[in-house]
Lab assay of single mutants.
Amino acid sequence: HNGKLCKLKGIAPLQLGKCNITGWLLGNPECDSLLPARSWSYIVETPNSENGACYPGDLIDYEELREQLSSVSSLERFEIFPKESSWPNHTFNGVTVSCSHRGKSSFYRNLLWLTKKGDSYPKLTNSYVNNKGKEVLVLWGVHHPSSSDEQQSLYSNGNAYVSVASSNYNRRFTPEIAARPKVRDQHGRMNYYWTLLEPGDTIIFEATGNLIAPWYAFALSRGFESGIITSNASMHECNTKCQTPQGAINSNLPFQNIHPVTIGECPKYVRSTKLRMVTGLRNIPSIQYRGLFGAIAGFIEGGWTGMIDGWYGYHHQNEQGSGYAADQKSTQNAINGITNKVNSVIEKMNTQFTAVGKEFNNLEKRMENLNKKVDDGFLDIWTYNAELLVLLENERTLDFHDLNVKNLYEKVKSQLKNNAKEIGNGCFEFYHKCDNECMESVRNGTYDYPKYSEESKLNREKIDGVKLESMGVYQILAIYSTVASSLVLLVSLGAISFWMCSNGSLQCRICI
C-alpha cells in the first residue's frame, strides 16, 4: 500500500475532517465546509473527530445509520420544511452556546429548535410527501429539559409530546424532565432520530412541544462500492481501485494482509504473511546465498510486491572476458508455465471484495464479540484455502523447474562428451581453451567436438587428477538461474548478450 488516501476510480472521497457522521448530518456549525458535499467514492472519518452533536445527546440507531450510509455515493440536500413558512405559530430561531460559531450562539444547520411564540405553543402538524424518486433521509430531535421551569419557559406545556409517523415508522416521544450533570454547559439533553422515507411515502410530524424540527433532508443515491473508513492518512493526487484505512492498494494479487476493511475492488484479506509461490528452483544453499535460486511470486499485497520470474541462460568467462545470454527457448517455456500457473491461482482465488467494518453500540458488546468470532472463522478458512492451494502448486513448480534445468544440462553434456569433466555440482571442467566463438557454439548447439578432442585428450593426460582450476583450465557451469522482474525479464530476452569482463582471468566458464 502507499499510505495515502486516493480517488477511487477517479472519484474523490468525502473527508469529514474534524467532524464525524453525526456532526455532518445534523449540521454542526463547525462542519459548515461539508454542506456543499454532493457525491463521493467513500467517506473518511478520523479516529478522534471532535465535532459531532454540539448540544449533548445521542443519535439513536447511529450504527444502523452508518451502515445505511456505507452504500450511499451521492445525496441532494434540500429544504424539507421551509423555515419561514412551515411554522407560522412558533418561534424557530432557537440557539445555544453549546453550538457556538465564530463566538456567537448558533444551532444545527439542518434542524430548527421550535419554541413557544408569545406565551403559547399551539399543537403543530406538518407533513412531507417524498417526490424525489429515491429514498429521503429525514432527521429530527426531541429536547429533554433539566427542570419543569425550563419546560414551561420554552414550550408552555408541561405534558408535551412529539409524534412522527410514516408508512414504515411510527413513534411517540415524551420529554424526560430530570436533573443531569452539566455537559457542554447544558443540564438538558437532546436525542436525535432518523428514518428513511421511501419514494411516494408521507411523513407526518405532530407536537405540542420539545420538537427539534427537520429543516433540511437528504435524497440518497446508492453506490455499492462506497463505504466509510476511519483513517488518519492524508489525501493525495492519486487514483486506485482499492482503498484501505492504511493506504491505497493497486494490485491484481488475490490476497492482502494490510487491513480487513477495504473499499472498492480489493484482494481478499488473509492473516498469512508467507503466502508465496515459487518460480525458481529448489533451494541450493551456495546459490541461494548469491540470490540466484528460489525466486518467488508473492500473492499477498503487503507481504511480497508483485511476481518475480526466474529465467535460464548461459554465463561464460574466458580470456576475452565474461558474458550472459538467455536461453530463449527454455526461458519462454518457463515463463509460459509460470504465467499459466499464476493465472490459474488468481482465477481460482481472485474475487474482488469490498469489506466494511460493522458498528455496534456499547450495549451490543456481546453481539460485536460474536460477530468478530464469526469473521475470524471465515478469515481462517480463507487463509487455509489460500495456503493449501499455493503449497500444492509450489511442489509442481519445483518439479517443473528441475526438468527444465536438467534438459539444459543434458544438452551441454551431450555436446562436450569427454572434452570436459562433470564435477558433480552442476559444473563441467573443460580440457581445452574455449574462446567466445567456442562458447557461442555450446550455447547454440553447434559445438565442434572433433575440433577440440585432441587438445582435450592431451590435457587429460597431463592433469592426472590435479585440480583443474589450479592448472588454468576452464570450467563450464551447467545450471544457472538469475532473477529478474517481469519487465526486466522481457528486456533481457530482447538482448543477445551483455558482457562482464574479468581482467586477466584465465578461467573459461559457460553457465546455464
Rank of each mutant, 00 (worst) to 15 (best):
N318R: 04
I479S: 03
S330E: 08
K421Y: 11
R366K: 12
T351R: 13
N503T: 14
G291H: 09
V342M: 12
K372W: 03
I284W: 00
Y431T: 09
S456T: 15
F428Y: 13
M349N: 12
K406F: 04
L275Q: 05
S502I: 04
N419L: 01
G321M: 03
P254N: 06
I479R: 13
N336D: 11
F430S: 09
V466A: 11
G426P: 02
Y480W: 10
S470I: 15
C508S: 01
D375K: 05
S505K: 04
R282H: 08
Y452A: 06
G321Y: 04
F430T: 07
E429S: 11
L281C: 04
A325V: 15
R271S: 06
R509S: 13
K241F: 08
G310W: 11
I512E: 04
N362V: 13
T244Y: 02
S231M: 06
S251V: 02
V483F: 15
N239Q: 11
N250W: 07
E387W: 08
T351K: 13
G377C: 05
N369L: 06
L370F: 11
Y452K: 09
T262L: 03
Y269G: 02
E265H: 14
T331R: 06
E410W: 07
L363Q: 05
V374L: 10
V342N: 01
L391A: 08
N418W: 05
S486V: 10
T446I: 15
V342F: 03
S286Y: 01
L363A: 03
C266A: 11
L391Q: 07
N239F: 07
V356M: 08
C266K: 06
G504N: 15
E368K: 13
L408S: 03
H401V: 06
L379T: 12
G424C: 12
N425V: 00
N404K: 13
A233E: 02
N419E: 03
I381L: 15
N340T: 15
N252W: 01
V405E: 08
I249W: 12
V270G: 02
V473A: 12
I308Y: 08
E461W: 06
G294E: 07
C434H: 02
A295D: 07
L416R: 03
I479E: 11
E461C: 00
K348R: 13
L489A: 13
I335S: 01
V342L: 15
A248H: 03
R396L: 01
N350L: 03
V491A: 12
G424A: 05
E393F: 05
N419F: 03
D399Q: 07
S272V: 04
I258N: 13
S322W: 02
Q246W: 11
N350G: 13
C266N: 10
D435C: 08
Y324V: 04
A334V: 11
V356P: 02
V356G: 12
M471N: 13
K358M: 09
L253E: 08
C427S: 03
S481M: 10
V278F: 03
T383Y: 10
S251I: 08
Y269N: 04
V278R: 00
N336K: 12
N232G: 12
L403D: 07
E265S: 13
M471I: 09
L506F: 05
I496H: 15
L408W: 07
V278Q: 11
E237Q: 13
P450W: 04
N371S: 04
I338H: 03
G306R: 10
N283T: 06
S481E: 14
F360A: 06
L392H: 03
V405F: 03
T331P: 02
D448W: 10
C438V: 05
N340W: 03
D435K: 04
T354K: 09
Q475N: 10
F430I: 01
L468D: 01
V342E: 00
Y314D: 08
K268L: 13
N371Q: 09
N459H: 09
S251G: 15
Q320N: 07
L392T: 14
S453I: 11
P245G: 09
G291M: 03
G302H: 02
Y312S: 10
E469Y: 13
D327W: 03
L370S: 03
I476W: 08
V374E: 05
D435V: 03
N444L: 12
L392W: 13
E265R: 13
K413C: 13
W304Q: 02
G298P: 07
N371T: 07
G424Y: 11
P245N: 05
V466K: 04
K457A: 13
K406G: 11
P450Q: 01
V442R: 13
L398K: 02
R290Y: 00
K467Y: 06
G377W: 01
I512S: 04
R460T: 12
L388S: 07
S322M: 14
F498A: 11
Q256F: 04
S330Y: 01
I479M: 12
E455G: 07
K462C: 00
E265A: 12
M349V: 14
G323I: 08
S272I: 09
E364P: 05
L389F: 14
E393A: 05
E429P: 01
R290E: 00
S330D: 00
N250Q: 11
K365Y: 07
C434K: 02
F498G: 08
K329G: 05
T244A: 11
S234E: 15
L379A: 06
V342R: 04
E469A: 13
T446C: 11
I496T: 06
D402R: 09
R509A: 13
K372C: 02
V270A: 01
F428V: 15
P260W: 14
Y449S: 11
N404W: 04
D435S: 13
K411A: 15
N394M: 15
F299L: 10
I346N: 05
V466M: 11
N250F: 13
V356A: 15
G465T: 13
R271H: 13
H316S: 03
Y452R: 05
E461H: 04
A355C: 12
E347K: 05
L253H: 12
D399Y: 07
Y449H: 12
K329M: 11
H259I: 02
D448M: 15
G280V: 09
D375Y: 09
T446S: 15
C508G: 02
Y269C: 02
Y474G: 11
M439E: 03
V488E: 02
